[in-house]
Design a protein around this nucleic acid. Structure first.
Length: 611
RNA sequence: GCGCCCGUAGCUCAGCUGGAUAGAGCACGCGCCUUCUAAGCGCGAUGUCGCAGGUUCGAACCCUGCCGGGCGCGCCA
């Protein structure tokens, strides 16, 4: 739908004009030609660097070329005037009726306005959240969830065929430890039942545990198992295990068997994932694919991927140099199975197997990425926390190696830490102190839309403060409010217009000549910049740009609204001027449409009225 | 010690993949509310873009080196 992007349209016109002026230049000479809004609005509506960019190849001084180009561009039907400027820019001022004509185009496109084809329908896999299923989601996971979801929406709007994915890390030592903790909670339930007491009579370990306060230490002592997790959130899981299996998970003596532990692990992971899905649903995140690391490993995907790399001569047994600086205490040289990631830009080669022969997390993740390649994705995107920054190069290297011959790019978006602030004080994230902020708590406190919007008011790679007081504040300082308020005002005006005699009618057919005020035209210019904003944000993988665009757009609208306070002829609805009213309502409807279009990308619900 | 991210107005941050005189909100100063649209509005002042070199018509943006903050650094995930 790039036909509705007036910047793309005039860029094409410019290139055509250049081709006419310089028929001998090859097409690629025009690749860097840009058509952008000038930083200073006084320069006009659009500016192109065309003369600067092709000047060298054309062997012409940019200023002279700009002069010639301006002459041709001035003759275009969309253009009011074109003038060379600075070292070789050409500034364009567009005809007002051309600008106004964007309104019916926006209204016809609806929320699809801004849809783009630059994705070319390429299949992209966006993996995000992928929190370990070892507990409920907390605010730390939240930013990645929101950024990932918005980025996926954005790519969809820009023409990619998007799959939203969650990789369940359910195969490592952490979930084994989690299973043990669930087992402890299960025994707590069990020993309180008559069946459990009967069982304890013939099982010394269980009897010892039952006779104690059944705390963490008592469990560790009775069964000789160290616990890493102790969270209350496993209490219901213990209960559910007992309900499902009764006394069936208790061995005659000692710790449970590997089979039983595997059963508990799977049960617990399912329970945690159910909780995480609930959290995601509360956040409005719905992923298409949940893929299990354990399932991929069982299916042999990781091993096959490593075999594939080995066949390319990229896997070897070797000994890594010790890391520089502070050595791990138990460091000793030892032979490991290594992937030659240095051949693809990494600093050191990376281990694929632990000394017990099992796969490292990296090895399994190679399997995860190989699986995506096998599913035919043309591009991969990962949204990770900043603490995974050191992991990026090796994974990019692995994907390069795996997709050798038909390269599939892997883009990693890192999200920096969120510091939660309340009453000007940082909220410490501590389970022990009971100040652990779960995602559910956060949503409960400030609402889903405020969480989502606020998480997108910073670049992903900049640290951010999340001020619990400010995000619910109803003032200009709060962008969530500011944008929602603009939409609510639009809707309010449109509702009033609808009640007027005759109603709104078809606004797309409204005569628009009366829209001549600078504030009205500024708003139209902003609306017309939406398609290029979508494209630029998608290409840069920067969903926060949508939030900033909406903030600017809301600002333009509020300015216009306030103009009506000073000058009643600038009110949107004027009883004495039905035609002017219809024109303004078309502008308001288009504004509401673009705000909704942007909020849709962000996953934020537009409100009809403020309360 | 090495790698990655960040460093822009007093504060919180943008800066559209290298463009023109670097922007917004807050805070600050001045003016504005009998009424229609004040959970405010208008106008104004505000900079060593961490520092120093380099690349080029042009650098906050790219390269190199320093300084400062964050994250990470062989069988955690």
């Amino acid at each position: 739908m790039t036909s509705t992007d007036i910047f793309a349209a005039l860029r094409a016109r410019t290139v055509a004009a250049l081709e006419a002026l310089l028929p001998d230049l090859p097409a690629e000479a025009f690749a860097r030609v840009q058509m952008e809004p000038p930083r200073d609005a006084a320069h006009g509506d659009m500016a192109t660097n065309a003369a600067l960019v092709v000047g060298k190849a054309a062997r012409q001084p940019p200023a002279a070329l700009a002069q010639a180009l301006a002459g041709r561009l001035a003759a275009l039907p969309e253009v009011e005037s074109a003038a060379p400027a600075g070292p070789g820019f050409v500034n364009l001022r567009l005809r007002e009726d051309f600008l106004r004509a964007q309104l019916p185009a926006i209204l016809a496109a609806g929320e699809g306005y801004g849809d783009s084809g630059i994705g070319g329908g390429r299949r992209v896999n966006v993996e995000y959240v992928s929190a370990n299923p070892t507990g409920p989601m907390h605010v730390g996971h939240c930013r990645g969830a929101v950024v990932g979801d918005a980025l996926a929406n954005l790519l969809g709007k820009a023409g990619w065929d998007v799959t939203k994915e969650y990789y369940i890390n359910d195969a490592g030592a952490q979930v084994q430890a989690l299973a043990l903790a669930a087992y402890w909670r299960y025994l707590q339930v069990l020993v309180a039942t008559p069946e459990g007491q009967v069982l304890a009579a013939g099982n010394p370990a269980l009897a010892g545990f039952a006779a104690s306060a059944q705390g963490r230490e008592a469990f560790e002592q009775a069964f000789g198992i160290a616990l890493q997790y102790g969270g209350d959130y496993l209490v219901p899981v213990g209960q559910a295990l007992f309900t499902a299996h009764g006394t069936g998970l208790v061995p005659a003596a000692g710790p449970p068997s590997a089979e039983v532990l595997e059963l508990i692990r799977a049960f617990t992971v399912d329970a945690m994932m159910a909780e995480i899905r609930q959290d995601l649903a509360a956040l409005g995140v719905r992923q298409d694919v949940f893929i299990s690391e354990a399932a991929l490993v069982r299916a042999g995907v990781a091993d096959r991927a490593i075999a594939d790399l080995a066949a390319k001569g990229l896997v070897y047994e070797g000994v890594l140099e010790p890391p520089k600086g502070k050595l791990p205490e138990d460091w000793e040289p030892r032979p490991q199975t290594l992937f030659a990631s240095t051949k693809f830009g990494d600093d050191v080669d990376r281990p694929l197997r632990k000394s017990d022969g099992s796969n490292t997390y990296f090895a399994n993740d190679i399997g995860n990425h190989a699986d995506k390649l096998a599913r035919g994705f043309a591009e991969l995107v990962q949204v990770w926390g900043a603490d995974h920054g050191g992991y990026v190069r090796r994974m990019v290297a692995a994907v390069k190696a795996l997709s050798d011959g038909h390269p599939v790019p892997l883009d990693v978006v890192l999200t920096q830490i969120v510091k939660v602030v309340k009453n000007g004080e940082p909220v410490r994230m501590s389970k022990r102190a009971g100040t652990y902020v779960t995602l559910a708590d956060l949503i409960e406190e400030v609402g889903r839309d405020a969480v989502r919007f606020t998480m997108l008011t910073r670049k992903a790679d900049a640290q951010m403060e999340f001020d619990l007081d400010k995000v619910v504040e109803q003032s200009r300082e709060n962008p969530v409010f500011y944008v929602q308020y603009a939409h609510a005002r639009c809707r309010s005006v449109l509702r009033s217009g609808d009640e007027a005699p005759g109603g709104l009618g078809d606004l797309a057919a409204a005569p628009l000549e009366s829209l001549t005020d600078p504030a009205e035209l500024a708003l139209i210019r902003r609306l017309a910049a939406w398609p290029r904003t979508v494209e630029a944000a998608a290409l840069a993988r920067e969903p926060h740009r949508i939030a900033f665009f909406l903030h600017d757009l809301a600002g333009d609208f509020h300015v216009l609204w306030n103009r009506g306070r000073e000058d009643s002829t600038l009110r949107f609805i004027r009883g004495d001027e039905p035609e002017a009213t219809r024109a303004r309502l078309a502008l308001v409807a288009a504004t509401a449409t673009v705000i909704r279009s942007g909020l849709q990308v962000m996953g934020v619900t537009p409100v009809e009225e403020m309360r």
